[in-house]
């Protein structure tokens, strides 16, 4: 089983606060991290390799510093890593990103399974996985919560839907996106850390990928962000006063008055 895991480097801003004075993000102490959902994708890839043999190749598209997440991936058990980086890739939407990844993964050739996180915490779209599958012309299953059994040309998995789980059989090669319920990622090993330090990580640019610059980055994107703004929070808060018992009474009175209970 040769597994390719797609990672993304994102700002670690899930607990970010807005500065009420300037209405901007407070970013002190914010570091770039591996997209949290991708850590489950990596762990599952490594577990599959440990169970069935083969190797795990991690890839990311991003600026030169995105190499950091690939080194981290090697410390966590990935065998190889490739960075897709070129200023021509900047400003890519999900379509252009998936196209770049698909072109690069086609160049890797040897793959049986591609794993992505369910979505990133910065873009939050969850679209690159399914778009990538379609561009590679292979099956796709989203929100996978368990890999049950892998045979030579197919595998049995479980995926999460709104009201439960579905057991699904899919042909291989395939693309899956995983949810955090699938595993508990390991910590880096000492050997892994040493390996990560010395690993050679090749960078593939637009030239190496042989892509036309009009098909990647901003020119290759179908969508364009035209405005970015901070959401207005509705402030309506009335903090009830008095003893707890009377607060509970007055809450119920209020709710009865407006007939929600």
């Amino acid at each position: 089983m040769n597994v390719v895991v797609c990672l993304k480097q994102v700002p670690g801003i899930t607990e970010v606060k807005i500065d009420p004075e300037t209405n901007t993000l407070i970013r002190e102490g914010i570091k770039n991290i591996v997209n949290p959902f991708d850590t489950y994708a990596l762990e599952e890839g490594v577990r599959i390799k440990e169970r069935y043999g083969g190797k795990v190749t991690t890839v990311t598209m991003g600026p030169p510093q995105a190499e950091e997440v690939l080194r981290e991936a090697i410390s966590l058990g990935a065998d190889e890593a490739i960075l897709f980086s070129d200023s021509a890739f900047a400003g890519a939407d999900t379509l252009a990103t998936a196209y770049t990844l698909a072109t690069a993964i086609n160049k890797i050739q040897e793959y049986d399974l591609i794993i992505c996180g369910r979505q990133t915490v910065d873009g939050d779209t969850g679209q690159v996985g399914p778009e990538l599958a379609e561009m590679l012309g292979i099956p796709f299953v989203a929100y996978v919560s368990k890999v049950e059994e892998i045979e030579s040309d197919h595998m049995r998995i479980q995926r999460m839907v709104e009201d439960g789980h579905e057991a699904i059989e899919t042909l291989l090669p395939a693309v899956i996106t995983v949810v955090k319920e699938i595993n508990v990622p390991r910590l880096p090993s000492l050997r892994g850390l040493a390996k990560a330090k010395s690993a050679a990580i090749p960078t593939w640019t637009a030239i190496e990928l042989g892509v036309d610059e009009n098909t990647v980055g901003l020119p290759g994107s179908a969508t364009k962000v035209i405005k970015v703004f901070f959401p207005q929070r509705v402030h309506r808060g009335e903090i009830l006063q008095g003893e707890l018992g009377s607060q509970v009474e007055s809450l119920l009175d209020n709710l009865r008055e407006i007939k929600v209970i």
Partner: peptide, 11 residues
């Protein structure tokens, strides 16, 4: 986007 911290208008 950004976990609900930022809104973006897209065309």
């Amino acid at each position: 986007t950004f976990g609900g911290n930022v809104m973006a208008t897209i065309i």
